[in-house]
Design a protein around this nucleic acid. Structure first.
Lengths: 140, 140
DNA sequence: CAAGCAGTTTAGAATCGATCTAATTTAAGA
DNA sequence: TCTTAAATTAGATCGATTCTAAACTGCTTG
C-alpha cells in the first residue's frame, strides 16, 4: 500500500483516540473521522457501516459495532435508544435532550438550558443517577 | 369445556376491551385480566407469556405480541423502550415518568407532579408533541 | 339458530439487529 | 526485527420480534 500523508483532521482524531486509551487502528481512525468531522451527528450502526462503504473505508459490520461501543465506553459517543429496533449513537456527549420525529426517524438535540427539570426526585435508596434521558416525540 | 361464571373482574376487563373496539376473545380477556387486575405493572412480552403459562392460560407468543400491540394502540398500555433489547409495557397510561434500575432491569413510576419540566421548547415547525419520555437511569 | 365472514389465533418459519467465534492481522514496545 | 496483546474479520449464531397461511371463533344477518 502507498504511504499517505497524515492530515490535520487525522491528527485530531488520532489524539482523541490515543488520549482515550484506544489504539488508533486504521479502522477506528477512519470511523472516528467520519463521526467527528462533521459536527454533531446521530447515526445508527447500519448507517455508519454504509457510510464507510460509500467512502471506500473497508470495515466489517462487527468492527463498526465494536468501535461504536468502544467509543461509547470512553465517552466519545452517547447511545440513545428510541425503540426496540432503533438505537442511535450521538456525537454530542454533553448534557442535552432530544426531539424525535416519528415519521422521519430523525433525532434533534435540545440544549440542556432549554429545559428546566425541577424537583428531580432522589433515586430511591440514595443510589446514583447514571443519566437522565428526555425524549420529546413529535408526531410529524 | 365446562361453562364458567363471569366474575366481576372479567366484566370490567370485558368492558374495557369492548369500549376500545377490541373483540373480547378468550385470549385477550385472559391477558387483560393478568395485566389490569394487579395495579400498575411493567411487563415484557416474554414475561407476560410466561405468566400466562404459569396461570394455565394457553396462548401463543404471537398472540401475546398481538395483544400487547393492540392494547397499546388503544391506549390501554404504553410502551417504554429502555434499550435495543428491552421493551416494557406499562399499564399506567397516565402522565408520568420512570426510574430505571440498570442492574436489576426494574422500572419504577415517577408521578408527573414530582418532576417539573419548564421551558419545554415548542416542536420545530409547530408539529404536535406525541409524548414526553423521561427516564432516570440509576446505577445500582 | 344456522350460516357467513371478518377478525383472531396459531405453530413454525423468517427476519432483523446485534453479538459471538475462532482464525488472522496489526500496532507498538523490547 | 520480534513478540505479544489487542483488534479485525467473515460467517455463524442469538434473541426478540414479526410474518405466514391455515384453522378457528365472535358476532351479525337471514
Amino acid at each position: 500500500m502507498r504511504a499517505k500523508k497524515t492530515s490535520t483532521a487525522d491528527l485530531t482524531v488520532l489524539e482523541r483516540l490515543r488520549s482515550s486509551g484506544l489504539r488508533p487502528t486504521r479502522q477506528r481512525l477512519a470511523l472516528a473521522k467520519l463521526l467527528f468531522s462533521q459536527g454533531d451527528r446521530h447515526v445508527t450502526a447500519e448507517a455508519l457501516f454504509n457510510e464507510a462503504k460509500d467512502n471506500r473505508v473497508d470495515v466489517s459490520l462487527a468492527t463498526v459495532y465494536n468501535a461504536l461501543h468502544d467509543f461509547t465506553e470512553k465517552d466519545l459517543l452517547r447511545e440513545i435508544s428510541i425503540d426496540s429496533s432503533r438505537s442511535y449513537f450521538d456525537t454530542n456527549v454533553g448534557d442535552h435532550y432530544h426531539f424525535y420525529f416519528e415519521t422521519s426517524g430523525r433525532l434533534m438535540d435540545i440544549p440542556a438550558e432549554r429545559i428546566a427539570i425541577a424537583n428531580l426526585p432522589e433515586a430511591p435508596g440514595g443510589a446514583e443517577v447514571a443519566r437522565v434521558d428526555v425524549i420529546i416525540r413529535i408526531k410529524d
